[in-house]
């Protein structure tokens, strides 16, 4: 894993990508820093951190688009997969390399509050800033996991980048969308039925056995029906609830206020782990196709 990590990290800096991403990030965040904190003479730093999250959203696809697409294109995936390394070690090594580039960028921006501290008469709220940074780091790491996943789906960097943009922007505005979706229990039921059908389809595709598929469908159908009769209220507002699972931004608000809660940390870590896991599955699945 460490070998892949090292190679990937070096690749970022032996190609323009590492410099472009870090440079763009610092340039844009520098403009905002100068405008709001220096010229605006404001000691409030965490507002800038949320802006940085938005800037980074636009740079993530550039950072992640080549992670796995390049391996396929250069046929180096054949060397990696036929080596004694496990697919998990390969994917995690690559993921951590992208996260490391992000971390380096964030560390450079620590210069901003350091600069401010010379001028803040009342001192800075360092703990609040630290909390904000931890949140920003976890949020960015989740973005990177999404980008990593999309780079495993295609051989084209452009497709991977565009798909990542779309997914991240969707997750960004998902809070606004949740207020628009209908909350009736029938919509919730519909969503569950679609999910059950998708699960049955997955069973069919992976086993090709009719009894197993029918059994899955019948079991899930029965469970859905029972819940619909006994606990109908569970379906109310379900669509919005499910969408809220993907709202990365909502969990970030606490960090921004300087609150370091356990549950958002666990949320971001498991969100990243889920996408890394999905990436591993995607690569392992390719062998069987």
């Amino acid at each position: 894993m460490f070998a892949v990590f090292k190679r990937e990290l070096r690749a970022y800096f032996s190609s323009p990508i590492g410099y472009v991403v870090i440079g763009m990030f610092l340039f844009m965040s520098g403009i905002f820093f100068a405008a709001s904190n220096l010229l605006g003479a404001s000691p409030e730093y965490n507002g800038l951190l949320s802006t940085m999250a938005f800037i980074f959203l636009f740079l993530v696809p550039i950072l992640t688009m080549r992670l796995l697409t390049e391996e396929t294109r250069q046929h180096t995936d054949q060397m990696l997969i036929t080596s004694p390394l496990s697919v998990t070690a390969i994917v995690v090594g690559k993921y951590l390399a992208a996260v490391a580039v992000y971390l380096i960028t964030l560390l450079v921006t620590v210069l901003y509050p350091a600069m401010m501290s010379f001028f803040a008469l009342l001192g800075l709220e360092w703990w609040k800033i630290l909390g904000g940074y931890i949140g920003l780091f976890l949020l960015g790491a989740s973005f990177i996991a999404v980008g990593l996943f999309f780079s495993s789906l295609t051989e084209s960097q452009i497709v991977a980048a565009v798909a990542t943009y779309t997914a991240l922007l969707l997750m960004w505005i998902i809070d606004a969308l949740t207020s628009m979706v209908p909350t009736g229990w029938l919509y919730g039921l519909g969503l569950v039925v679609i999910a059950a059908a998708a699960l049955a389809l997955i069973v069919w595709l992976s086993t090709r056995s009719i009894p197993a598929t029918v059994a899955t469908a019948v079991l899930l159908g029965a469970a859905i029906a029972v819940v619909a009769v006994l606990k109908q209220f569970l379906y109310e507002g379900l669509v919005a609830k499910v969408m809220a699972w993907f709202s990365l931004l909502k969990r970030y608000e606490d960090f921004n206020l300087g609150i370091l809660g356990l549950s958002p940390v666990v949320y971001y870590l498991s969100f990243s782990a889920a996408f890394v896991f999905l990436t591993v599955r995607m690569i392992e699945r390719k062998r069987w196709m």
Binding site: R7, R10, A11, S14, S15, Q74, H75, T76, D77, Q78, M79, T82
Partner: peptide
């Protein structure tokens, strides 16, 4: 040790 049909090379190394 496997040498695939097209050599698996990293161009920037």
């Amino acid at each position: 040790g496997y040498m695939p049909e097209l050599p698996p090379l990293y161009p920037d190394m």
